[in-house]
Design a protein around this nucleic acid. Sequence first.
DNA 1: CGGGATCCTGCACGATACTG
DNA 2: CAGTATCGTGCAGGATCCCG
Lengths: 122, 122
Amino acid sequence: MTDTVHSQIADEHRELLDQILDKWSLLVLDKLCESPRRFNELRREIPAVSQKSLTASLRRLERNGMIRRDVVNTRPLAIRYEISPLGHTLQDLIDALFDWTSAHMDEVAASRDHFDAENDPR
Amino acid sequence: MTDTVHSQIADEHRELLDQILDKWSLLVLDKLCESPRRFNELRREIPAVSQKSLTASLRRLERNGMIRRDVVNTRPLAIRYEISPLGHTLQDLIDALFDWTSAHMDEVAASRDHFDAENDPR
DNA sequence: CGGGATCCTGCACGATACTG
DNA sequence: CAGTATCGTGCAGGATCCCG
């Protein structure tokens, strides 16, 4: 196998992860792994996300098969977003990522302070 | 604890992950976990990355304490980038992420095709 | 060799207003 | 309630040129 083949594969990985690891999707997936939610429930639980971005994130996750969008025909109509089996395979990974940030947040912050202090605070 | 406290914490996680999971850092970290590299070695191994983006990614990783930058005083001078102990704690996670993409790439692609076929290919 | 400095572009994201 | 439509912005990221 040549280097270019390797890097093509690596690039596919990157693109795929880019799709899933967008600004909000991890938070959304985390919530949906817990239990199905409705649109405005997610908005309330992730206050920093705009309605447009949440819509986009949900669409992308749905397109990639990570979540399912169920239309419940009531009045007014309700929409349930729920994790898919494929999305569920990410749960452990997501938990591990959040655990990692919890465990190393301070360490990273300290490193940042140190770096900023050394590199021209001019 | 209130909702806002929860979401603030979640937001810190998101920001931290955003720092680390930028477009190229996972690929860079993956290489550096294997062995130290020099700047142009990384460029060659990740052909899609531009020089500017690689520089930025390395700087960010260094600032966050994930990698170390060693200046070797030869002529011409050489720079060794190597994984730090903190960065090393991410290795298993990164491996797991790449394993996940390898395992589910086809599934995701199929889901995408299905989604695109259903939603107005007009 | 390992970058820095500039210029430029797209697109991610937010704000706001409106709708079935 | 769950969006769509439109507008505006920043900033990530590529292209190019230059430097010790």
